[in-house]
Design a protein around this nucleic acid. Sequence first.
DNA 1: TTACCTTTGACCAAATTTGGACAAGTATAG
DNA 2: CTATACTTGTCCAAATTTGGTCAAAGGTAA
Lengths: 97, 97
Amino acid sequence: MTIGQRIRQLREESGMKQRELAAKLDIGEGFLSKVENDQKLLKRDDLKKLSELFNVAHSDLETLWLANKVYDLIKDENQGLDALKVAEEQAKYSKGK
Amino acid sequence: MTIGQRIRQLREESGMKQRELAAKLDIGEGFLSKVENDQKLLKRDDLKKLSELFNVAHSDLETLWLANKVYDLIKDENQGLDALKVAEEQAKYSKGK
DNA sequence: TTACCTTTGACCAAATTTGGACAAGTATAG
DNA sequence: CTATACTTGTCCAAATTTGGTCAAAGGTAA
């Protein structure tokens, strides 16, 4: 699940229209639409608002948000998956420092 | 292994000094030093030069180069590893489209 | 039709990143 | 001490990304 999918899910579960949520986030509905379709990313600060609004863990939203950035980096790459593996190794390794 | 480590390895195996390789890449030695220490990234085009110069697979260098970008994105993040996993799922999923 | 949602494309200023240069500092060998 | 090799901090213009807006277009239900 992507961050956009998750946001749409939360919004729909709570019965809101895009326009309503957009207003709470202080953005236009067009922009929110793009966010839900993963064509744009919300800024990080807005994740806090979302977690409070929908009462979900902030860290979960951050994970999805970050994942989106990572995926964006590799989505059109041939070596994308390999690169992910390498990065993972580096992350694991440097954690034990 | 990071892209910087790999470049240093290739350079040393071929007995070059930083200054020499830097000249071939048309950059300063200071910049190359940072590249080898993963403080700066070479631009992508230079990978081609490297692969020809050292006769190694271009795709391998690209994988390491990309991995560096990915790692940069998550290295200071608490949810970094989780995000990597999520991104991996997305990559695998969308490959079968 | 009309009304209401959502999507999409074009555009943009502002913020950030990139890809370096340059000089000074460090390390080591002779 | 000197030379050679490498590292590091500061700075920067140019390129790219971010975070949007707005208007037009698409669906869809009544």
